[in-house]
């Protein structure tokens, strides 16, 4: 087994284990604290090994996994949102699995077809998708809190569960940042294809159409939220749909074109 395979195994197993441990944060029992801490530790281990893997392989899936992992860790410190890891850890594990089984060769283009716009396109897409994933996790946390409070299940809410204002603020920022980068990735992708550097553009049509659909959906969320004054509950539900659309463009169009997952 070579070094890359070992790192890959460490990343995947860390996030799989972290997925099952970080959910302990939803329980109020102090006995869960050790398990939770082990979960966070494994998450950090997984983040470091995935970053090494992403830098070595240049694979878009590992780049995305590393970006989501770092965004999660940053959100722990900035917004004290430790519980977001309960959502992002399985998403990262799934992304790494997709890399192992479906996209082992999907990577950032080599220098032969390298252009600045394509590089920016990929980086922007990864950051945009990272924040869309984060927004989805935040939406789930928000809607769970909403449900528990509506049903008055006060004793079932974990002590460390984030407050509404924290979740709303984090969700709004994630949506705005995600939208900005998705827009940038669409623009740079368009420039790249208009320059005629894509051999089989027909193969990319479903992906382009789907990416525009995802972008339009996020635009709708922001317009309705900012102009129509939509309640955060509606914004949260819409961002869940946005994430579902984006996942389809990631997993559903895996086999379209040479860089289907980019």
């Amino acid at each position: 087994m070579d070094n890359n395979a070992i790192i890959s195994m460490i990343s995947l197993s860390s996030f799989l284990l972290a997925s099952s441990l970080v959910v302990l944060g939803f329980k109020n029992s102090p006995r869960q604290v050790i398990g939770l801490r082990v979960g966070y530790f494994l998450f950090v281990v997984g983040t470091l090994s995935t970053t090494v893997e992403a830098l070595q392989s240049g694979s878009t899936a590992t780049l995305l996994a590393a970006a989501v992992a770092w965004a999660t860790i940053i959100s722990w410190f900035v917004w004290k949102l430790e519980l977001i890891g309960a959502f992002t850890a399985p998403v990262i594990a799934l992304t790494l699995l997709s890399h192992i089984f479906f996209l082992p060769h999907a990577r950032v283009p080599s220098s032969s077809i390298d252009t600045r716009s394509l590089q920016i396109h990929i980086v922007a897409a990864v950051i945009g998708q990272t924040f869309a994933i984060l927004a989805c996790g935040l939406s789930l946390l928000f809607l769970w809190l909403d449900k528990k409070l509506k049903n008055r299940e006060l004793n079932e809410l974990p002590v460390r569960y984030p407050a509404f204002t924290t979740l709303t603020k984090a969700l709004n920022r994630s949506l705005w940042i995600g939208f900005a980068f998705i827009t940038l990735s669409l623009l740079t992708g368009a420039i790249f294809s208009l320059n005629g550097q894509l051999d089989n553009i027909q193969n990319m049509y479903p992906k382009i159409v789907w990416a525009i659909l995802v972008w339009t959906w996020y635009l709708c969320i922001l317009v309705l939220k900012e102009i129509r004054g939509y309640q955060p509950q509606k914004t949260a539900r819409m961002s869940l749909i946005g994430f579902a659309l984006m996942s389809l463009s990631w997993f559903g169009l895996l086999f379209v074109g040479p860089w289907g997952a980019q």
């Binding site: 006060l154 809410l157 569960y161 984030p162 509404f164």
Partner: peptide, 12 residues
């Protein structure tokens, strides 16, 4: 204390 579910910082 329940209001902390709205905002962890009650001064806001």
């Amino acid at each position: 204390d329940l209001a902390r579910r709205a905002s962890s910082d009650l001064s806001t």
